[in-house]
Computed example of a mutant assay.
Amino acid sequence: MADKTPGEIIKDGLWNNNPALVQVLGLCPLLAVTSTVVNAIGLGLATLLVLMGSNLAVSLIRNFVGESVRLPAFVMIIASFVTCAELLMQAFTYELYQILGIFIPLIVTNCAILGRADAFASRNAPGRALLDGAMMGLGFLAVLIVLGGMRELIGQGTLFVDMNLLLGPMAADWVVRPFEAYPNMLFMMLPPGAFMGLGLLIALKNSIDSKLEARRRVATPAPASSGSKRVRVTGNVS
């Protein structure tokens, strides 16, 4: 991992090694709170803050923490940043914090965050660790928003409802209702709908990856055969 370029770190976080679509980590909050876009953004921003902060802190102390206390130290760092995220949400978006409930404190147990701290931040310089945390967090946030938008649109026929809980009164009129008299689909608002939606997103990503790989193979010419040529020798044998 230490020899990854910044471009590769960005691609890994956003697509190639996306924590939700490839690593399939953090599914408990992802499936539980993505019933609307505003819930997804709230959880995604909190996770992004914790990922960036914990990656940076773990990278800074990586040479001063022994193997025996490494994981407990990482958990304490992550818990500290989760507490900071909780206090910020209580101060500025209290109603949204109440809706997300226990899933904000549960960020401490998110395997995606602890996994990046152990697998990447503890082995790389602070700048690279911070970039990795930002890209992994943005990749997770993007999946949350897409899944939340899908579930909200299909489930209740709206988009961006209650955005004022996150952005204040200016976002009170942002709600979009593309369908008139839409019959709510309760299935998509429940956990089974979240599982189905995530499965569709994973299938879509795999399909795109397969098509890109097929195009890459077509565009790359096959190496020329380097086999030795046979030389036929004729002559009289006495």
Rank of each mutant, 00 (worst) to 15 (best):
G139D: 02
P72G: 02
G66E: 05
N184K: 08
L49Y: 13
I107Q: 05
A91Y: 01
R177L: 10
P221F: 10
L130S: 02
Q156F: 07
M1K: 03
V161D: 12
N18W: 09
M185N: 13
L87I: 13
N184A: 15
M188D: 05
L130V: 00
V24W: 01
D173T: 14
M188N: 08
V58D: 00
G101V: 03
R215D: 13
A125R: 15
L186T: 15
R230S: 12
L71V: 15
L21T: 08
G197F: 02
F92K: 13
R230M: 07
M185P: 02
V176T: 04
G42R: 05
R217M: 11
A171C: 05
N206G: 10
M189I: 01
E180A: 15
L96G: 09
F64T: 14
Y94N: 13
A2S: 12
G137N: 01
L114K: 00
P169Q: 02
C84K: 04
R70W: 06
A134S: 10
M170I: 14
V176Y: 09
I202H: 06
V175Q: 15
P178I: 11
M1H: 05
R70V: 04
V175E: 15
G149I: 00
A2L: 11
R116Q: 09
N55Y: 04
L51H: 12
L71E: 03
F179W: 14
L56P: 00
T93C: 15
F92I: 02
G148K: 03
K11N: 07
W15D: 07
P192K: 07
L14W: 04
G44M: 10
A142W: 06
K229S: 11
N236K: 11
I154E: 07
R123I: 01
V22M: 03
T234K: 08
L31D: 09
T234D: 01
R216M: 11
L138I: 14
M189K: 13
E180R: 12
G44T: 06
E180S: 13
L204P: 01
L27D: 01
A117G: 15
S226Q: 13
G13R: 04
S59W: 05
L30W: 06
D3Y: 10
T47S: 14
T5D: 04
I99E: 14
L56H: 08
I154C: 08
P178Y: 10
